[in-house]
C-alpha cells in the first residue's frame, strides 16, 4: 500500500541528481580551460592534462602547457575546492545548529581569518605568511567561540551562536584598526583587495598546501554524511537512541571550521556560497545529509567555478569573486525565500 503522494525524493532520484551534477562539473572543468586571453584548443587541453599522468607525444606549444598547467589548472582546482568546502561547511553548520541561516562564517572563522590576513599584510609577511596567519586566526576565533559558548549556562547551541557574533565583531574591529594604521599607498589597497576575495594568482603549490586540511575535513564529513542527520534530534532523543551526539557535534564543527578556515585563508572572503548553495541543494535532493552533502559539494564546486570564470573573463579587469558571489547570491536567496513552500 504505497502512497501516491510523494513529498520527498527517492534514493534513486537523489543518486541520479548527484551523478548529473558530477557530470556537469566534469564538463565545466574541461571547458573552463578554454577561457582566457590565450587560445588553447580543447583537444590540446585534454592532451596536456593527460600528459601529466601518461606519456603522450607533444603536439602543443610550451606556452600552451604553461597556460594550462601553471595558470589555469591551479585556479580552476582552487575554485572547485573552495566552492566544495564552503558549501560542505554551510550544510554542516546548518545541521549542527539546526538553523537554516547558519553559514560558514557563523562561528567567526571568516572574521578571524580577515584579521589574520590584514595583520600579516601590515607586518609585511609574504603571500604564504598571509595564508598561514589567516588560517591560524580563523581557528583561534572558533576556538574562542567554543570556549566561551561552552562555559555559559543554559542553551549551549544558542550561546555558541551568540559567542560567534560577539567574537566576530571583536575581530572585525581589529581588522578596522589594522586598516586604520596601515600604509594607505600599498598596504591598505592590498588588505582591501584581500578582503574582497579572489582566486587570482593561485599556484599549484598553494593548492597543494590547502588540499591537506580541505581533504581531511571533506573526507570525514563525507563519511559521516548519514550520521550527522542525528544532530537534528534533541540531545535526549539521540541519547535514548543510543548515540553520543556531543562527540559527533564537536567532530562536525571541527571539520566545518577546518574547511572554512582553509578556504578563507587561500581565497579571502567569499560570502554567500555556503548559505545559498546548501538551500538550493535542499530543494534538489532534500535535507537528508546522506545526499545533501555530496550534492552540495558538487554544486558548490560548479557554482564557484562558474562565478570565477565570469570574474576573470567578464570585464578586461578582473572582478573580485567575493563581489560577484554577493551580487548573484543575495538576490537569489531573496528569490528562494519569497517562493518557499517548504520550511527551508
Amino acid at each position: 500500500m504505497k502512497n501516491a503522494k510523494r513529498e520527498t525524493i527517492s534514493n534513486r532520484q537523489a543518486h541520479r541528481i548527484i551523478a548529473l551534477l558530477a557530470g556537469a562539473l566534469f564538463v565545466l572543468f574541461l571547458l573552463s580551460f578554454l577561457l582566457g586571453r590565450f587560445d588553447v584548443p580543447l583537444r590540446e587541453v585534454i592532451r596536456i592534462l593527460l600528459s601529466r599522468i601518461i606519456p603522450i607525444r607533444q603536439t602543443w606549444t610550451d606556452r600552451m602547457a604553461v597556460a594550462v598547467i601553471n595558470i589555469r589548472l591551479p585556479r580552476i582546482l582552487l575554485a572547485c575546492l573552495v566552492g566544495c568546502c564552503l558549501t560542505a561547511a554551510g550544510i554542516s553548520y546548518q545541521t549542527v545548529f539546526q538553523n537554516p541561516m547558519a553559514a560558514p562564517d557563523i562561528l567567526g572563522a571568516s572574521s578571524g581569518a580577515c584579521f589574520g590576513a590584514a595583520l600579516a599584510i601590515l607586518l609585511h609577511a609574504g603571500r604564504v605568511g598571509v595564508t598561514v596567519s589567516a588560517f591560524a586566526f580563523s581557528m583561534l576565533s572558533v576556538f574562542l567561540v567554543y570556549l566561551v559558548g561552552s562555559r555559559t549556562r543554559g542553551n549551549r547551541i544558542m550561546s555558541i551562536l551568540l559567542a560567534g557574533v560577539m567574537i566576530s565583531s571583536l575581530f572585525s574591529a581589529g581588522t578596522s584598526y589594522v586598516k586604520l594604521v596601515a600604509d594607505p599607498t600599498n598596504q591598505l589597497p592590498a588588505i582591501t583587495y584581500w578582503l574582497m576575495g579572489s582566486l587570482s594568482g593561485a599556484t599549484l603549490n598553494q593548492v597543494g598546501y590547502a588540499l591537506i586540511p580541505m581533504a581531511a575535513g571533506l573526507i570525514i564529513l563525507f563519511l559521516l554524511r548519514w550520521r550527522i542527520n542525528l544532530l537534528t534530534l534533541s540531545g535526549e532523543e539521540a541519547k535514548a537512541i543510543g548515540v553520543n551526539t556531543g562527540r559527533l557535534r564537536l567532530c562536525a564543527i571541527l571539520c566545518a571550521t577546518l574547511l572554512t578556515a582553509s578556504s578563507v585563508a587561500v581565497s579571502g572572503m567569499i560570502g554567500w556560497v555556503g548559505l545559498v548553495i546548501p538551500h538550493l541543494c535542499r530543494k534538489l535532493v532534500g535535507s537528508n545529509c546522506r545526499f545533501l552533502l555530496p550534492a552540495g559539494m558538487l554544486f558548490g564546486a560548479i557554482f564557484l567555478l562558474l562565478v570565477d570564470n565570469l570574474s576573470r573573463n567578464l570585464l578586461s579587469v578582473e572582478i573580485p569573486i567575493g563581489i560577484l558571489t554577493a551580487f548573484i547570491g543575495a538576490p537569489f536567496f531573496l528569490f528562494l525565500m519569497t517562493r518557499r513552500e517548504t520550511p527551508v
Binding site: P100, R227, T232, I241, G242, V243, G286, T342, P343
Partner: peptide, 24 residues
C-alpha cells in the same frame, strides 16, 4: 523539525545505535 526529513528517514534514525559510525 527545522529541516524536512521523509518519514522513512525519520524512522531510520531510530536505528542509529545499531549502524556503524561511518555507515548508512
Amino acid at each position: 523539525p527545522t529541516f524536512g526529513y521523509s518519514v522513512l528517514d525519520t524512522v531510520l534514525m531510530g536505528m542509529a545505535g545499531r549502524i556503524a559510525v561511518f555507515s548508512k
